[in-house]
Structure formats: structure tokens, C-alpha cells
Design a protein around this nucleic acid. Structure first.
Lengths: 223, 223
DNA sequence: ACAAAAGTGTTAAGAATACACCCATGT
DNA sequence: ACATGGGTGTATTCTTAACACTTTTGT
């Protein structure tokens, strides 16, 4: 047991945000082999003494200039391991999903041209990262269906239309306005702020906020 | 980057089966420090060049005398990492859930008194293994609710009463017989074999089998 | 004939769906 | 006055939940 050598451990992150009502994923351009020049999920090594969650924060900060404290929700997804995953040898990759809004990417000395891409027009990505992105998207969809997780994609106060658009972007299909409002309001997960949102030549919208800011299950679920 | 040292990587497994209509978990008695003499989930190191899935099979075989080919379903659960998890230092543990029926534990030179314990009367367990077991139980319950996963807890042919008992054991609450049958049969996930199951001084029961033996989503979900 | 589990249907309440017009504002 | 998005209710269908007796067998 003294000769024990653990596999390489890496962390890859799928960060979603809404970009003009389109669900988008954060990718970086790889600066070295393998897959140099390809777009990829921000990822890197996890070292002894560092939790995978800490490694995620460090890597997103270094490679994408993203402060994970700004994410409204972080959730571990799945741990992928295939001997062929990394051309340099066997690797195990723990993956995380992050949700945010209006995320700032602070360009630094190690950032690798981080950029958000709408999920429906992704470029070719390195490794098995398209599998990971699709896995994350499924998790996002199910999470958003039975919890209040959309809060992480929205500003603190928002209109019912914005809320519905966030759901539509995440679920990738349209919802009926009256049924959506009736059902969502019945959950009592949000409350009116009393404020109005004026914008453009039309009736102003009521602003709402979530009653609870943490992750909570909804009474019933959507599709 | 040449000085990269990965954390210790371990795999722990939660194997469930029905033991006389009681949902039970496989535990072993630890043979060495730390937690020597305590009951624990079967677990061990994952080495470079070995996938975590392969490590799971090897460890279950060595420590519990269980052939993972006999499991009807294996699913990765979650990857736990806390610096304090293992007194020997920082470790990352990938966890798996396995479901089976009538599992044989073949005692060998390395097996550590493997034994199934009903989930409602578990002994004290080592590490954070009670957290892992509860996590697995929740996953089992949700999996069984929206998929045909119970098939892995049942023999190839079974009566509707056995099916219902499997659900009740997994969900930990009773179900209404007529509603259960009506709803489950409406899924078309099972078919009658034409055979009957005679047992005891009462009307024989029809035997059913699952149409598909792999994991499939049900049209609607239970609770 | 009795004990034991198998099998079977109806009704009422709740949830999901489909659907169209008026309201408040800015220009 | 008109263009724009905000806001609202009802009828129908489907799903769920509650509930009790008859059937078939072995002893």
C-alpha cells in the first residue's frame, strides 16, 4: 500500500447564465496541447489538500477571470472517468455546474479568452466536453423543474415575464403565460416588492422577489 | 506542473437489496485503523489506470465477496471531499449505489464479515458513511419514483404484490393496492408471463415480468 | 367452512391544459 | 390614436386519492 499512486484528478465546470434571454455556457480557448486552440470548459488539476470545490473556484478565477462568489448556485454534477479521457493518461474529472447572471469576466494574466456561448450554437469543444455540457443541461432542466433554482439566473427583483423567460430559456420550450403565472404564484415562492418596472411604451410590470434565497423544492414540478 | 500530487482517491459503495421485504444495505466490519471494528461501507483506494467503476467492482469483490455482475443496477452517486474525511489526510471519495436481489457473499481471504443490515436498524458506521447511506437512500427513492429501477430489486418474474412491496420498502411508506396496480399497469412497463405463483392456502397470483430490462423512465412518477 | 392473499371499479377532488381579451403606458 | 407588452378567468380533460367486497386456493 506504500506504492499507492492515485489517478490524476481534474475539475471541470459548466457555468450557465442568461445572455439576452438565451441560455449560455462559459468556454475558454485552450492555450496548450492537447486540443490547443479549441474551445473547452474551464478545468484543471485538483491537488492534494485542496477540495474539488476549492479547485473549481481557483480554476474559474485563474482561467476565466470569474469570481465564484458571484454565482447564485453551484452544484456538483458527476464524476467522469475513462482511461482515454485525457491523452496524457488516465484522469478522473469531477464536474460542477454554476448558475449566475451578468457575470463579469476579469481578464488577467492567465485567463484564456473566456466567453459565453448560447447553448444552441456551441462551437466544437475539446475532450468529451459536449457530453458534460449536455449532462449539465439536463441537470439544470430537472433542477429548475422541481426547485426554485431559477433565482440564480435572475436579478434580485424581476418581472413575471422575466421569470417566465428564464424558465423558457432553461427548459428550451415555450410556456403558456396564464398557466405559468397561476401555477408559479400558487407556490408562494415569490412575493411582490411593491415596485414597478417601467420600460418602453407599454404598461409597467410589477416587480417580484424570491422569499427564500437558498435552494428550495417547489410544491409541484414543471416541465 | 511536474510537482503535481493528486489527492487520495477512494471509492465507497452502497449496495441495497431486499431482505424479507426490508430494504437492506451491505456493510463490512473494518479490519484496521482508523475505525477498526466499526461497520462501514465497502470502500478502498482507486489507483492510477483504474476507473472508479472498476475499482468499485474490485473492492466489492475483495472486501465483501460480491460479484458486481450480479447487481441489477449500478449508478454513480456523488463525490464527497472534505479535508477531514479520512484521518490519514485529504481524500476524495467517489460513491456508487448498487441494487440487487438474493446476493451471494462469497467469503474469501480478504472479506471483512460482509453483512446486510435493514436500513431502519443500522449500526453506527465509520467516517461520514451514514451521510452517504442517506444520500443513497434519497437517490434510490427518487430513481424508483420516475424509472423502472425496481426491476433490479426483484426476481425476473414476480407478482404485483411483490412489486408493490418492493416499492413500499424503497419508498418507506405504504401504497394503496388498487391505485398502485391501476397506475403501474397503465405504464405498460410489465407484462403477464401467463404463469401463476402458488404459495400457501390462498388464491394463486399472476406472475409478471418487465418488458425492458434496462433502466427506463416511466410515463409519470410515484411518491 | 374457514383462513389467507389475490383481484377488481367508482366517485370525488385536484391539477393540467387550452384559450382571448382588456389595461396602462410612451410616442 | 396606436403600438407594445402587462395582466387576467373559465371550461374541459386528466390525474390522483379514497375506499370494500368477491374470488380462488389449501387445510
Amino acid at each position: 500500500m506504500g506504492e499507492y499512486v492515485p489517478p490524476t484528478l481534474t475539475v471541470d465546470s459548466v457555468v450557465f447564465q442568461l445572455d439576452g434571454n438565451k441560455l449560455s455556457v462559459l468556454l475558454i480557448k485552450r492555450a496548450r496541447e492537447p486540443f490547443i486552440g479549441w474551445w473547452a470548459l474551464p478545468g484543471g488539476y485538483c491537488a492534494a489538500g485542496e477540495t474539488t470545490r476549492d479547485a473549481m473556484a481557483r480554476i474559474l478565477n485563474n482561467k476565466a477571470g470569474l469570481e465564484t462568489g458571484k454565482l447564485g448556485l453551484v452544484e456538483q454534477l458527476y464524476t467522469f472517468d475513462t482511461v482515454a479521457r485525457d491523452p496524457r493518461g488516465h484522469a478522473v474529472s469531477v464536474t460542477y455546474m454554476g448558475l449566475g447572471r451578468d457575470l463579469q469576466l476579469e481578464v488577467g494574466s492567465h485567463t484564456q479568452t473566456p466567453q459565453f456561448f448560447p447553448v444552441d450554437t456551441l462551437p466544437k469543444v475539446a475532450y468529451d466536453h459536449d457530453d458534460i455540457i449536455h449532462y449539465a443541461l439536463e441537470r439544470l432542466q430537472s433542477k429548475v423543474s422541481y426547485t426554485n433554482a431559477v433565482y440564480a439566473l435572475l436579478p434580485d427583483t424581476f418581472t413575471l415575464t422575466q421569470l417566465q423567460q428564464a424558465y423558457e430559456a432553461a427548459l428550451e420550450h415555450p410556456l403558456d403565460k396564464r398557466n405559468f403565472r397561476k401555477k408559479f404564484l400558487s407556490y408562494d415562492a415569490i412575493e411582490p416588492t411593491g415596485q414597478q418596472h417601467k420600460e418602453g411604451a407599454h404598461r409597467p410590470a410589477m416587480l417580484y422577489r424570491f422569499r427564500e434565497t437558498g435552494l428550495q423544492e417547489l410544491e409541484r414540478s414543471f416541465d
